[in-house]
């Protein structure tokens, strides 16, 4: 069937060229840049070096990355802790209500995340509603300094990324066969036993997917820490942005970006392996 078709050639050519030009080449450029040296005038100088990667291992920067990862990790954990019971409750309501409730989780999604970050900022401000509420109810005597702290960044990340945790959890919990839970109870397992030994393993793919969907974007959301955090509450996103736009040290920024991508890729590979493993376990 070696028919020469202009349409076929054009179609594959256009889409293939687009992907090559706007995905392959730019990524290769960043990878290459990370091995080059900084140049004041032309961003990079064509001299091979591993210096950029060595600098990433510098304790000063490692601390920045560590702090960033910690904030993203805490945000992920909070999302999971809040989201799991929530998704479970949602999945166990009657179908009509269930979809309305789910829609209510998604609606804030439709507003630009920057605006939602701004909304959180208004809420957390020293003169903001939250402090007023806490003062009014007598829980605190003096307004808390919430804004411009690592806590605020974490709250912001949780607020923005919460639906990304809830949706995959909801998907796996909704599919959970209630007969399995009954079987577990029937076999003498208590509520806690059932939860730990049956529900958690069966919903593990959702937990891991939700975790990745929160953790990975959280590392890059520089505007959240810009608007909510203090000078030290940097995310990797801020760091890369600073290297590219402010410090103009592209090779170093590129090296940080490549490192981050590699770590993410490793986590994704681990994820795919783990779901395959879980799938195999279920069959056994």
């Amino acid at each position: 069937m070696t028919e020469k078709s202009l349409f076929k050639t054009a179609t594959i050519g256009l889409t293939g060229a687009w992907l090559g030009f706007f995905v392959l080449i730019p990524n290769v450029m960043i990878l290459a840049t990370s091995f080059l040296q900084r140049d004041e005038a032309a961003f990079v100088r064509l001299d091979f070096t591993l210096e950029n990667y060595r600098r990433i291992l510098d304790p000063v920067y490692l601390q920045v990355f560590g702090h960033s990862a910690a904030m993203a990790l805490v945000a992920t954990m909070v999302c999971l802790a809040l989201g799991y019971p929530f998704a479970y409750a949602l999945a166990r309501t009657r179908p009509g209500l269930r979809h309305l409730l789910l829609l209510l989780v998604i609606i804030p999604f439709w507003t630009n995340s920057l605006i939602r970050t701004y909304a959180i900022r208004s809420l957390l401000a020293t003169q903001g509603v939250l402090n007023k509420l806490l003062l009014f109810t007598g829980i605190i005597d003096e307004p808390l300094r919430l804004l411009y702290t690592g806590t605020a960044v974490t709250i912001g990340l949780v607020y923005i990324l919460f639906p990304f945790m809830v949706l995959p959890l909801f998907a796996v919990i909704e599919k959970l066969d209630t007969r399995l839970l009954e079987a577990s109870a029937d076999l003498g397992a208590g509520r806690f036993q059932t939860f730990v030994r049956v529900i958690i393993p069966l919903t593990m793919p959702g937990i891991i997917a939700g975790g990745l969907l929160v953790f990975l974007p959280a590392l890059g959301m520089f505007y959240v820490s810009d608007l909510l955090g203090g000078a030290k509450d940097l995310l990797i996103g801020n760091f890369i942005k600073n290297q590219f736009l402010d410090a103009r040290d592209w090779p170093f920024g590129a090296a940080a970006s490549v490192t981050m991508t590699l770590i993410m890729a490793l986590m994704l590979i681990a994820y795919f392996f783990s779901i395959r493993k879980i799938g195999k376990k279920e069959i056994r």
Partner: peptide, 24 residues
């Protein structure tokens, strides 16, 4: 490769795509 590149776009963090396009 075609499929792989689509996957790369979806999985790349925004910031990584942002700087790579900027570089381009």
């Amino acid at each position: 490769a075609f499929e792989g590149l689509l996957f790369v776009i979806m999985m790349s963090p925004d910031i990584v795509m942002a700087i790579s396009l900027l570089a381009l």
